[in-house]
């Protein structure tokens, strides 16, 4: 059965990637044991490390779910990064300009939902271009990333710039627009709960509802689906809206739960790493959870690798890219299996 294979293949890929990482460290003249120890310590070693990993897991999980869903439907959404930024932008506009004085009970849901809607809108542009003009969503989503980044740059240098005008960043969110912390943690925001519930919800939607069946049918064979009375265009629009919405939600949670401000370099490429997350998860909503945890741990651990083991930043980036490449390519489900 493919059940156990879909678990073992990603695990094997992670194993291969970690061994390759060790070998490469050796090759580069670093002490691989010390570096890997730092990596593990930095990701799980103490409470701070664990909280860091959880915080990074949140956007990877949300964007990764959206990417997995879109890929399932045969829609190549490479625009997670831009959709995330647009979500953050909308959330910041709402929190610092449109409704800064609204009570928390109203403002917080508006900020979070507004972010998700903006992300969905960004995905929707790609959908409209595909359905209306036949523009490949691979191109349009990639290019819309740049538009989103520049929009954020414009916003923090212009209309959303902090009142003092000193730095290219938004004002600090009013407290009513900031997500509360999970009890017992120092920094983990409550949005994580939402993110953790979503894989199961999306699993149910994808495998236990008619809508999910339609979506998967289009991904497997669009023309056969059309013959069965499903309209692939409608599924494409729907899945890009959901996918963009999830990324937008991730962006909103980042600004309202982690930074409390909008910056230009808010994301460390979450939208791109999320593609690797989805592939490592073999596009399964439940698999996205451990896959996001793995990449989050890699990312927090690599910071510690610089600080503790003095591995240069460029080497760390090289290693991260290598792990993404190996784990994604070895875990990729074959279309024929």
């Amino acid at each position: 059965m493919r059940g156990w294979r879909s678990v073992l293949a990603p695990l094997g890929a992670i194993g291969i990637a970690l061994v390759a990482l060790g070998l490469l460290l050796l090759l580069l003249g670093a002490d691989p044991l010390r570096a890997l120890g730092a990596l593990m310590g930095g990701a799980f070693g103490d409470r701070n490390a664990l909280e860091n990993t959880l915080l990074r897991m949140c956007p990877l999980l949300l964007v990764g779910l959206g990417v997995a869903l879109a890929f399932r439907c045969g829609v190549w959404n490479i625009g997670g990064e831009g959709q995330l930024y647009l979500g953050a932008l909308a959330a910041s506009a709402l929190a610092t300009r449109v409704l800064p004085d609204a009570p928390a009970l109203l403002l917080l849901p508006l900020v979070v939902l507004g972010g998700a809607l903006a992300g969905a809108l960004w995905g929707g542009i790609a959908a409209a271009l595909r359905v209306g003009r036949g523009v490949s969503e691979v191109l349009s989503t990639i290019l819309l990333n740049f538009v989103a980044l520049l929009l954020v740059a414009y916003a923090v240098h212009g209309p959303l710039q902090e009142a003092s005008g000193a730095y290219p960043q938004s004002d600090l969110f009013p407290l009513a627009a900031q997500l509360g912390l999970l009890p017992g943690t120092g920094r983990v925001h409550s949005g994580l709960v939402l993110a953790l519930l979503l894989p199961a919800a999306l699993w149910f939607g994808l495998f236990r509802t008619a809508a999910g069946l339609r979506l998967r049918a289009v991904g497997l064979a669009p023309e056969a689906a059309r013959y069965a009375g499903i309209r692939p265009e409608r599924e494409l629009v729907r899945v890009l809206l959901i996918s963009g919405g999830l990324a937008g939600l991730a962006g909103a949670l980042e600004v309202s739960g982690v930074t409390g401000r909008l910056f230009e370099n808010l994301s460390s490429g979450y939208g791109f790493t999320a593609i690797a997350v989805a592939l490592l998860a073999r596009l399964h909503p439940l698999g996205v959870l451990p896959a996001a945890a793995f990449f989050a741990a890699l990312s927090t651990g690599s910071g510690a690798m610089q600080r503790v083991a003095a591995v240069p930043a460029v080497t760390v980036q090289l290693l991260e890219a290598l792990v993404i490449l190996i784990s994604a390519s070895f875990a990729l489900p074959r279309r024929t299996d």
Binding site: R56, T259, R261, F263, L266, R307, A313
Partner: peptide, 21 residues
């Protein structure tokens, strides 16, 4: 000495906190 490249606000916080700890 210790050094880290931090590109996002969150990495900055992590770096500060870890070195201080």
């Amino acid at each position: 000495i210790a050094h880290q490249v931090t590109r996002t606000p969150q990495q900055v916080e992590e770096g500060f906190r870890d070195l201080a700890a």
